Simulated scan of single mutants.
Amino acid sequence: MNTATVWIGILVFACGSYALRVSGVLLRARVMLSGFAEKTLDRAVVVLLLAVVVTSTIFTGHDVAGPARVLGVVAGGICAWFRAPLVVVVIAAAGTTALLRLSGVS
């Protein structure tokens, strides 16, 4: 894969992302969704984000991640549950993971 291919991929992805965002703004006034559909879409977003978090937490490439990463994400999740600021959530997650790795838990 050469540099030109990567840049073309980035541009296509950026244009597609922008088109999705613009279409959402333009179509919001024209397309009316039922309450059930809006609730379902809101839940779908949460499920998608949760799936990304879980797979990123548990796996590193093709291998299973160590317990330090999982416990770090759990610590960040607890801070987020109690509505801590984002900076605190990130520092708690990274700090927990770093301290566990320093203590020999990988």
Rank of each mutant, 00 (worst) to 15 (best):
E38C: 06
T97P: 07
L11E: 04
T3H: 12
T40G: 07
S23L: 15
A68C: 07
I58D: 06
V45W: 10
L50C: 11
A44Q: 14
G76D: 03
G61P: 13
E38K: 11
P67L: 12
R43I: 11
A14D: 05
I78V: 15
L20A: 15
I8V: 06
G9F: 04
D63A: 08
G95A: 02
L41W: 03
G104E: 03
T55Q: 13
G16K: 00
G104V: 02
A44Y: 13
R28V: 03
S23E: 15
A92W: 00
F82P: 00
L49W: 08
A65M: 10
S17E: 09
S56H: 12
M1G: 11
I10T: 07
G66V: 03
L48C: 13
A14P: 09
A98Y: 03
E38G: 00
V87D: 02
A93Y: 03
I10D: 01
T3E: 09
S34R: 10
L20M: 15
K39M: 07
V46E: 07
F59T: 03
P67D: 09
I91W: 10
A29G: 08
S23T: 15
V52S: 11
A68Q: 03
L71H: 06
T3P: 01
L71P: 12
M1H: 07
P67Q: 10
T3L: 13
L102M: 08
A92F: 00
R28N: 12
L20F: 13
V89I: 12
A29I: 11
V88M: 03
A92D: 03
A93I: 02
V46I: 15
A68S: 12
Y18K: 08
A44S: 14
I78A: 09
A92H: 00
A84E: 03
G77C: 07
R69Y: 13
V53L: 15
L99M: 15
S23C: 11
H62P: 10
K39C: 06
C15S: 05
V45Y: 08
A51S: 15
R30F: 07
I78C: 09
C79V: 08
T3V: 13
S23W: 10
K39S: 12
T40K: 10
F36R: 14
L86C: 04
S103M: 13
A68V: 01
F82C: 00
V22N: 05
I78Q: 02
V73F: 02
P67T: 10
V64M: 06
G24C: 08
A80K: 09
D42C: 12
A37M: 13
V88L: 04
I91S: 08
A37K: 06
V54K: 02
L50H: 09
A29W: 03
G16Y: 00
S56D: 15
V89A: 05
G77P: 04
H62I: 10
V45P: 02
F13R: 00
L99T: 06
I78D: 05
G95S: 02
